[in-house]
Design a protein around this nucleic acid. Structure first.
Lengths: 144, 144
DNA sequence: TAACATGTAACAGACTTTGTTACGGGAGTA
DNA sequence: TACTCCCGTAACAAAGTCTGTTACATGTTA
């Protein structure tokens, strides 16, 4: 089971805005790089826009970053594209039996433990920026 | 989007084995505590068994832990119930365009970054044991 | 006004999870 | 042996999400 690829696509989009900064980054152009439908890109772009990561205007072709890419972390993108809610990375079974000591306490016992793990994940994502991804790609291109 | 509740159920099962260690932990009994179908429990129990965490025998009612609960971490359970594969916590879009510098490099650039985050998550899970969960539940029972 | 891009609703197909029923086969007891 | 209980597993259905598509309204520019 994997989390939605919206996250990876969001990173792809932002990275592409930089690599192709001299071109026009329309949803169609981006879609051809990601290899998907332009509507998929527009939906994700909308999420990035709501999060204040990109600027897009209806009717005007092309999106641009709303911040320095070195100030957009993978965590920002992860939050923006909404693949996981707070405290909800790990699914919980509903309505365990309140007549059982385990059933009536398991949720509040486990929740903070799950939270710690989720926060560790999110912290790791906060340590990397889109700029890092851009540099990684440029390096790989140099080598080739 | 949340990861499968099999993980939470697996923890519930192992915890219950301890709390109800003087009783017979049949799939039906456990199912009533978890509030699900016995078959769901048997399936998850099979995964725990394959991972060497519990002992169960066909035809014989009841499961018992195969190790000390202080030596079973949440990470062990997480691996056992198979909610996430290695390097696959975050979904990736397939077949990005190889004609684009971003498309042809994004996967290998992102994969190690995702890996670091996933490992941080898993490490956090490794720091907690089922015994900790058992103690947490006992504490909550004392207070009430 | 014409041409083009974004924003969004609506829907379909694919996939996974969760819950069920059904049944084969092992284990223990009378 | 016959009976009963339970685990193991296959098969299937319902529900939910993701991903991709079509269609169309709205906004912008020439």
């Amino acid at each position: 089971m994997s989390l939605s690829s919206r996250f990876a696509v969001g990173i792809h989009i932002l990275t592409l805005l930089e690599i192709n900064k001299n071109g026009v980054n329309s949803s169609e152009f981006i879609a051809s790089s990601v290899n998907t439908n332009p509507v998929v890109i527009r939906k994700i772009m909308g999420l990035l826009k709501n999060a204040g990561l990109v600027k897009v205007r209806p009717g005007v072709a092309g999106a641009v970053p709303a911040k320095e890419l070195s100030e957009i972390s993978l965590f920002d993108v992860y939050k923006a594209v909404n693949i996981v809610q707070d405290q909800e990375l790990f699914g919980m079974h509903e309505n365990p039996n309140p007549a059982c000591p385990v059933g009536r306490n398991i949720q509040e016992t486990i929740t903070p433990l799950f939270s710690v793990a989720q926060l560790a994940l999110e912290k790791a994502l906060g340590n990397v920026t889109i700029q890092d991804v851009v540099l990684g790609i440029l390096e790989k291109e140099q080598i080739k």
